[in-house]
């Protein structure tokens, strides 16, 4: 895509299909992570974390809303329906995001590794050939700083504390590591997305940039590198998901789906 024209009708069909698929990846990742954040509301370890997780949920779901809005502009349907009504196999979020929160250590490490990935991906989108994506990424990157700082602080605190905190972090790392590789996949239209400059990094480059950041932190915290991440059995970017997404969607959509025609 050579120009920055956001007019849907001017996008060639093949590129449009790829762009739509990719926008679902961006929107669904943020919606699902945002929903998992919101599940800590009222049950977080202290009131500061109640506030923090509620605020981060609001940020992430706000980002999802932005991307669903772009999909709506491309004729995909109402943003609310895209968020609440699509079936499991239509979802494009990475499976890492849909896993249950687990204990505090699992929550922190999953979110930290995701936030690192998200900042790498947003950096690869600020020069996107699709101008609305570039504008959104440029703005979101500024907000993500706070999520990364918060999660990084918690991760260091738990890992350096020794005792139960350290052993829980080590267990959580092994658990979360099984799903991280799915983050770096761009789905079935990967070539065209990179070739047309919708995203300015390909899958190996996204992974390499993330790995550089993560190895640095692991070295600092003397955490053993768990090895090269392997793709999980389910691939979120092509609509394969675990049972946990099914449950999440049912919970998240319960009110909306009861009266879909109501104006909330």
């Amino acid at each position: 895509m050579k120009n920055t024209d956001a007019c849907p009708s001017s996008i060639p069909p093949q590129l449009r299909t790829a762009l739509v698929d990719f926008l679902y990846q961006l929107a669904d990742d943020e919606l699902v992570v945002g929903h998992r954040n919101s599940e800590w509301l009222g049950v977080a370890p202290d009131i500061e974390e109640d506030v923090a997780f509620a605020s981060m949920a609001q940020d992430e779901i706000g980002h999802a809303t932005y991307f669903y809005g772009l999909l709506e502009a491309l004729g995909e349907g109402r943003a609310d329906d895209l968020a609440f009504v699509r079936t499991v196999t239509e979802r494009r979020n990475a499976v890492l995001t849909e896993q249950q929160n687990g204990d505090w250590a699992t929550t922190i490490i999953r979110h930290y590794l995701y936030d690192l990935f998200e900042s790498v991906r947003l950096k690869a989108l600020v020069a996107s050939a699709y101008e609305p994506v570039a504008q959104g990424a440029n703005k979101m990157l500024r907000e993500e700083y706070y999520h990364l700082l918060h999660m990084g602080t918690w991760f260091r605190r738990l890992a350096m504390n020794g005792g139960v905190a350290r052993s829980r972090i080590e267990c959580a790392l092994a658990l979360v590591w099984k799903d991280v590789a799915d983050l770096f996949t761009l789905g079935e239209h990967r070539e065209i997305l990179v070739r047309e400059g919708i995203i300015t990094m390909d899958e190996p480059e996204l992974y390499a940039a993330w790995e550089r950041e993560v190895t640095q932190v692991f070295t600092e915290l003397q955490l053993q590198w768990p090895g090269s991440p392997q793709l999980p059995a389910e691939r979120g970017r092509v609509g394969q998901h675990t049972i946990h997404l099914q449950t999440l969607l049912a919970d998240m959509g319960e009110v909306y789906l009861t009266y879909p025609q109501t104006n909330w």
């Binding site: 506030v51 923090a52 509620a54 605020s55 609001q58 940020d59």
Partner: peptide, 9 residues
């Protein structure tokens, strides 16, 4: 710092 997050975003 008490909390990076507050009453509004």
């Amino acid at each position: 710092i008490e909390n990076l997050f507050g009453p509004t975003a």
